[in-house]
């Protein structure tokens, strides 16, 4: 029952958010700022994580191949598919769910408890839209770009770790990357990326906006934003995989 009530409030929040902005010029500027903030604050951690995931997956797949009759270049193919289909979009989204999600929830939550949201409402501004719309659009623009970036770096990390550990040569790894490439996999991964980016930004904004109380509640909203975003991500990961891969 509580879940249904929360879901209903979330839908009403989204209805309030997706309204025509007061001033398009200001809205455009907000989108640029939010996109920049999300991308600029996250590309380092995403680079680190995705490179190492690519590296580790190469070593682990190489370990599985040890003593088998399968050709080595298949390591590159498996690393490619596992990273494009799952690791890059899902791990990136989970990391950003923590980083971007908590940032959005705590920013809006602090605005709520310090009466900045009330100030907007009294001025006659739709506070839900003003605080959240640009963040959602900014996230939907930037997070898929970070996923694409994570895909590339994970493959680079895989190639480098394969070469450094002597599991597979760079040429062999690249041959594997080029074998049986299916473009649809990238479409699937980007569909997940767009879905996850909407989940992260909208759920976090909602959690921030419903904050009532003080600093303790802002922390609680921030935690809830991360938890519910992660649940949303893994749930829609399953749904999209079922819908798009079979």
């Amino acid at each position: 029952m509580k879940f249904l009530q929360n879901f209903g409030e979330y839908i009403l929040f989204l209805k309030a958010v997706f309204t025509k902005p007061e001033k398009l010029k200001i809205f455009r500027q907000q989108i640029i700022t939010e996109s920049y903030n999300i991308g600029n604050s996250s590309y380092g951690i995403i680079a680190l994580i995705s490179t190492f995931i690519g590296a580790v997956s190469t070593i682990q797949i190489g370990y599985q191949f040890e003593g088998s009759l399968l050709p080595d270049y298949l390591i590159g193919r498996i690393v490619r598919d596992s990273n494009i289909l799952e690791f890059a979009p899902t791990i990136t989204a989970l990391v950003l769910g923590g980083k971007v999600g908590s940032s959005i929830a705590s920013e809006i939550g602090t605005m709520k408890v310090t009466e900045q949201i009330d100030a907007l409402e009294i001025m006659g501004i739709n506070a839900a839209s003003h605080t959240s719309f640009a963040k959602i659009i900014g996230g939907v623009i930037t997070i898929p770009m970070l996923v694409l970036y994570a895909m590339i770096l994970s493959l680079v990390g895989g190639a480098v770790s394969g070469w450094l550990s002597g599991i597979i040569s760079v040429e062999g790894f690249v041959k594997g990357l080029r074998t049986g490439f299916v473009g649809y996999n990238v479409v699937f991964a980007m569909t997940k990326a767009y879905t996850f980016s909407f989940i992260i930004t909208s759920i976090s904004a909602f959690q921030g906006f419903r904050t009532v109380g003080g600093a303790l509640e802002v922390g609680e909203s921030s935690t809830n934003a991360v938890v519910y975003s992660c649940i949303g991500i893994i749930f829609f990961d399953f749904i999209l995989s079922q819908l798009m891969l079979f």
Partner: peptide, 15 residues
């Protein structure tokens, strides 16, 4: 609301 100005207890300035 455009005719209303409000001074908040904690000022509510945008950080």
């Amino acid at each position: 609301r455009k005719d209303i100005g409000m001074l908040f207890q904690n000022t509510a300035l945008f950080d």
